[in-house]
């Protein structure tokens, strides 16, 4: 198992804030919009340096999505910022008609996704957003794994022409990917090469998959770990190559098991290469109030759950 270390923990939303600030420096067409969550989305640096390119919309997310769509018309690149719940479910039809169907170059940037929002509870913990967004034709869906990758992803989507959903979160987590990484949309990142089982993880679950891989190594199991930061378009080639080698797969996501990364992988495997799969994901449930760690344990998203899933799926290998 390749050794991963970290010297600090940071939140992915701060990676977005840093990326947005850098994007503003690099491209004068970048504009930012926020629905009364500037501090939570870490947009302060952008606003300080580019006040004329920032729009405070107030608590009116539907209007924000429409304004963002309108801003694209003469070539602006709008980044909208609010919580994942208010970036997707609350404004689904606005995104569908004014952004996705209209082919507008809007970057929908969503913080506080998943259970790790913590104490605010289920009203704010969306676990359905990946599914909602990946179903929209032409929508790119990205869920990076740490601070550095989120910053790199924010810059990469600036250069991509078309609507993007960028999902990130609230808690501080290890920073373990390189600061100077090149982020390629739709390109899987090989975390660890192995032969016994493929573990595919996205977002906050990637570090947990690494911890699980270390435990599996102690048990004599050689896990291949892949970071799928782009859920759509899915890097089908990388996944098939790995599963053909290992013969089984575990998918890990901080999302409902319905509609998420796991189902995208299952669709690929049933059409291209049959192999047993286990889902480490929320089992069709809403969340609740507690600390992020307590919730990840209760909803079975811990490294121990990945280890158990790997052991289970390996038994089903032909």
């Amino acid at each position: 198992m390749k050794k991963y270390t970290y010297t600090e923990k940071k939140d992915t939303r701060s990676g977005f804030g840093a990326g947005l600030h850098e994007a503003g420096k690099r491209n004068e067409n970048v504009v930012a919009l926020c629905a009364d969550l500037v501090g939570s989305l870490k947009m302060d640096a952008f606003i300080k340096d580019f006040p004329e390119r920032f729009v405070q919309v107030g608590i009116a997310e539907a209007n924000m999505m429409g304004i963002a769509a309108g801003l694209t018309i003469n070539g602006k690149i709008p980044f909208t910022g609010t919580f994942a719940n208010f970036s997707t479910g609350r404004v689904y039809d606005q995104i569908r008609q004014s952004i996705a169907y209209s082919g507008k170059n809007v970057k929908i940037c969503a913080s506080h996704a998943g259970l790790t929002l913590g104490e605010d509870g289920a009203t704010h913990q969306i676990l359905e957003d990946i599914g909602l967004m990946k179903m929209l034709p032409g929508m790119v869906v990205i869920n990076p794994c740490d601070y550095n990758q989120t910053k790199a992803a924010t810059l990469a989507i600036m250069d991509y022409e078309g609507p993007v959903y960028l999902r990130f979160g609230r808690p501080v987590i290890p920073v373990f990917t390189p600061e100077d990484q090149k982020f390629e949309i739709g390109k899987a990142w090989m975390v660890n090469e192995g032969t016994d089982v493929t573990i595919i993880a996205t977002g906050h679950m990637v570090w947990r998959a690494i911890e699980a891989g270390e435990k599996l190594a102690e048990l004599g199991i050689d896990a291949e770990i892949i970071n799928i930061h782009t859920i759509k378009p899915l890097d089908e080639e990388a996944i098939l190559k790995s599963v053909k080698k290992t013969g089984c797969v575990v998918t890990c996501e901080e999302h409902n098991k319905y509609g998420g990364l796991g189902e995208s992988v299952a669709r690929l495997l049933t059409t291209e290469y049959l192999a047993p799969q286990e889902f480490v994901a929320v089992n069709d449930s809403f969340g609740e109030s507690a600390t992020p760690d307590q919730l990840m344990t209760k909803y079975k998203l811990d490294p121990a759950d990945i280890v158990a899933a790997a052991q289970k799926v390996m038994k089903r290998k032909k």
């Binding site: 304004i67 801003l71 694209t72 018309i73 003469n74 008609q97 004014s98």
Partner: peptide, 27 residues
């Protein structure tokens, strides 16, 4: 045509966005 419409209530927001863009550009 610069935006899809039909699902009601969305056009004014889009028009505002386009108007803001013109202001940013001094158009």
């Amino acid at each position: 045509v610069r935006i899809a419409s039909g699902s009601l209530g969305q056009g004014l927001s889009v028009a505002i966005g386009a108007a803001l863009a013109k202001k940013i550009d001094g158009d």
